[in-house]
Structures are given as structure tokens and as C-alpha cells.
């Protein structure tokens, strides 16, 4: 049992390393047809999300840092993973999943943000930021 736990820690560690290595230029073009200028599409940055499911399709932060989408409504289900002291979480990490329906505007960039409080009874916060306007469009920002 413990070995599986250690293996998962090593895998998590290696995954985090590979996640760090995701090139910023790795963009998932999630719309058909020829490339459009940035002003004609919406950009979703995975940022703090380890993975997401966008309109039913999986995107890993290890593969892509950003997703280009057509403007309009999109279903985004996303997960963030946080390292936590083993004194609080025996597994050494915690994760949270959120689901949002986002109405994305053309030329706007959205960022999946996550942060947590520390100590016993910690809380993980998820929110989505429209960095073009600087506003939070979904979720609750960490106080």
C-alpha cells in the first residue's frame, strides 16, 4: 500500500516537473478552419489548472498552456492540484474540481486561477479572471 503511495508521489513529482516544462508556445487550437487573429478568438490560459475538459475534450497542462476558442459559451471543467503538508493530508496533495459555463468574448484572455489557505481546515479557491478587463467572471477569489 505504502509503495503505491510513494509511486504516486513520484509520479506526481514527475508530472509537476513535466508540467513546468510546458512551453508557452504550446497552444491548443480548439476551433475549425484556418488560423484567426487573436482579436477574433478567445484565449483560455490553464495557468493554475493541472487539467481541464473544454466542451467535452480533455486538455492537460502538461500538453498545452493555452487554448484558443471561438467566442461564445463554453463548458469548462477544470482541476487544480496543490501540495499539502502530510500532517494535514496523508497523500501530500489536495485537488479541487470546478465546472463553469463561460461566455467568452473575442479578443479576451481568460485565466483559470487557484490558490489555497494553509493549515488545518484549509480552503481551495477557484476563480476565472478576464485578464483583458481585470475582472473575476466566475468563482471566488482567495481573500
Amino acid at each position: 500500500m505504502m509503495l503505491a503511495f510513494q509511486v504516486s508521489i513520484l509520479v506526481l513529482f514527475l508530472s509537476l516537473l513535466s508540467g513546468c516544462a510546458t512551453p508557452e508556445s504550446a497552444i491548443y487550437k480548439l476551433y475549425p478552419g484556418p488560423n484567426k487573429p487573436d482579436s477574433g478568438i478567445a484565449t483560455l490560459e490553464l495557468y493554475n489548472a493541472s487539467s481541464a475538459v473544454i466542451d467535452g475534450l480533455r486538455v492537460s497542462h502538461g500538453d498545452y498552456a493555452k487554448v484558443h476558442l471561438l467566442p461564445g459559451k463554453h463548458h469548462v471543467s477544470w482541476t487544480s492540484v496543490h501540495g499539502v503538508s502530510v500532517l494535514i493530508e496523508p497523500s501530500g496533495f489536495a485537488q479541487k474540481e470546478s465546472q463553469n459555463l463561460i461566455d467568452m468574448e473575442e479578443g479576451h484572455t481568460y485565466r483559470l486561477r487557484s490558490d489555497r489557505t494553509t493549515g488545518p481546515g484549509y480552503v481551495i479557491y477557484h476563480w476565472i479572471e478576464d485578464i483583458t478587463t481585470g475582472s473575476v467572471i466566475a468563482g471566488a477569489e482567495k481573500p
Binding site: 500500500m1 505504502m2 509503495l3 503505491a4 503511495f5 510513494q6 509511486v7 508521489i9
Partner: peptide, 21 residues
Amino acid sequence: IQGDEVGGIDIWIGFYGAGYS
């Protein structure tokens, strides 16, 4: 597909134990 697991290793300021999976 996860196979057999034998033994285990603890981490607490170092690694302790032996096993394989």
C-alpha cells in the same frame, strides 16, 4: 493496469522500507 504490490516504503525525513509493484 496495476499489478501485484509487495512491501512498502515510508517517507519521513528519509526513506524506510522495501517493496515492489
